[in-house]
């Protein structure tokens, strides 16, 4: 980016400083493919898009409340990456029904959302947010690594960019899991609680379904990721001296539009302004 500020002349005409944006080549904001999605591909794209959207929405709530300013910036980055993924995925999903990413984000209700229960769980304290990030980022890394090879060019392109970003998210959450688990007695206690609160929602991530069968070669089979996921998190948990929690397994149902009670509140907040002004553009 070739912005520059002229700071020598005191009385140059532009009080904003001469900011030259010539020569700034802006990358594409969204990943767009040449094709229109089929209904099945659109459905799958909204599984992934809704996961990213809901998680981004959650992280957005941390900004100005993080434990340190540097974390406001870090969580902001993760949230922005996820919004980018959500936009590309929902934009693509929308092509099947001539809807925009915003149509899908702001005008669907819970039964039409396809997000997993894990991303809907509330932020809680920092440990809960980190525990949720740790699980989801590791899953997303495995997912996007393989989705790069998708038979669908648009999904493959989205995955190619996303995998690099979620690699960073994976690392960020790993660093914090280690620090919280091995920091002080209090942080360890909170990290253990957080992990056990989040764990019931892990199983749902790796469940297959008829849509996956129909999208052989295009979608990534969720169950195929479980081993890699377990192997990726094992050394971190070992180093953190954290045990895999045993206990409840949530029934889930997010992929079929059956959600935890949290989603309704999250969507109500997200959609309130848009719904108050139907037809308006912003």
């Amino acid at each position: 980016m070739t912005n520059h500020i002229e700071t020598d002349a005191d009385d140059h005409a532009d009080d904003h400083g001469h900011v030259a944006v010539d020569g700034t080549v802006l990358d594409a904001e969204l990943i767009e493919g040449p094709s229109v999605a089929t209904p099945d591909v659109a459905e799958y794209a909204s599984w992934l898009g809704d996961d990213s959207l809901v998680l981004a929405q959650q992280l957005g709530a941390w900004i100005s409340r993080a434990p340190e300013l540097e974390e406001d910036v870090a969580l902001g980055n993760v949230g922005l990456d996820l919004i980018g993924h959500a936009r590309s995925l929902l934009h693509y999903a929308g092509t099947a029904s001539n809807q925009t990413e915003d149509d899908l984000a702001y005008w669907r209700t819970e039964p039409d959302f396809r997000s997993l229960h894990i991303v809907e769980q509330p932020n809680g304290d920092f440990a809960h947010t980190i525990a949720r990030q740790f699980v989801v980022a590791h899953y997303l890394f495995e997912l996007y690594s393989r989705l790069r090879a998708s038979g669908d060019a648009t999904l493959a392109a989205i995955a190619a960019k996303a995998v690099k970003e979620v690699d960073y998210h994976r690392d960020h959450s790993t660093q914090w899991v280690l620090r919280l688990a091995q920091g002080t007695d209090e942080s360890r206690r909170r990290m253990i609680t957080a992990l056990s609160d989040v764990w019931p929602y892990v199983d749902e991530i790796f469940r297959d379904g008829p849509l996956i069968d129909r999208l052989e070669g295009i979608a990534v089979r969720p169950s195929s990721l479980r081993t890699a996921f377990d192997e990726a998190i094992a050394p971190v948990l070992a180093e953190a001296e954290l045990e895999i929690p045993r206990g409840f397994v949530a029934t889930g149902g997010g992929r079929d539009g059956i959600h935890s009670e949290h989603l309704a509140f999250l969507l109500a907040e997200m959609q309130v302004l848009t719904r108050a002004h139907p037809g308006a553009s912003w």
Binding site: L53, A56, Q57, G60, A61, I63, S64, D72, V73, G76, N77, G79, L80, I83, G84, A86, R87, L90, E101, D102, A105, Y106, E269, M270, V272, L273, T274, H277, A280, W282
Partner: peptide
């Protein structure tokens, strides 16, 4: 959390960041 479009949401997050 209430930004009325995903683009505006992203822009606002980037600004506050």
């Amino acid at each position: 959390t209430r930004a009325p479009s995903l683009k505006r949401k992203a822009i606002l997050m980037a600004k506050v960041q």
